[in-house]
Amino acid sequence: MTDAREAIHRDLVLMLLADARLPVAGHTQSATLEPALRAGLGAGDVPGYVTTRLRTVTRVEAATAVVALHHLAAGLDVGPVEAAWAARTPSPAMRATSRSQARAFLRLAGRLWPETAPVLAVSAYRAPCRAVALAAAAASLDLEPAALARLVGYDDVQTACSAALKLLPLDPADVTGWVVGALPTVDRLAGEVAHLTRPEEIPACGAPQIEAWAETHAHTTRRLFSA
């Protein structure tokens, strides 16, 4: 598994990267849903919560990934992309979560595609965020920007919805219905950010309540999910 570009269909690459069975500790994440439910959100609020994330924090993450992909594909330094993401992510808990997920992901990518320039370039950084780490894999495997943005959006929806299933008494088919219901929003998000190339173009949509919940959760000892 050294030549990453050798005849792997992009659909298969996307399935692989979106698969919850990937050993990157995705099961430890609730997309901040756990503190949101603790703060009083109910089952009926989950689809709205997912949409709010797609319009705010996940939009920032998807756009960061797309811009990082452009930089890596062009051989440019991703430092300014990381800095743009960090300035748009005021919550230290959310930055720490993203960077620890990136660490796990890069460990895996380093094993699977060790010789590719983007993975090497991003692994050389002190603590890249998850969007930049995903972009390294995408650049190594020739994924399109829109596909990468869809991956980030889809993963966030699935993370929140599958966490809901563990935190609330729900019918799994209903929850899958929420995921399906969010897909047009994911697709729209991807269409809106896929063309971005410059760090300063990354949207900066804040979500003060989600950011506050993320901080509260990071400081509690009573939790099922790490974030």
Binding site: A39, G48, Y49, T51, T52, R55, T56, A83, A84, A86, A87, R88, P90, P199, E200, P203, A204, C205, G206, A207, P208, Q209, I210
Partner: peptide, 30 residues
């Protein structure tokens, strides 16, 4: 509301856009 703080070398410190209205506010601010 748009907030943009940079140092004089152009490095971003805090960049944030909040779009609050009767529809978005309940989601963004609880």
């Amino acid at each position: 509301q748009s907030t943009r703080v940079h140092d004089d070398a152009g490095t971003p410190v805090l960049v944030e856009e909040l779009s609050l209205d009767p529809v978005s506010a309940p989601h963004l601010l609880g």
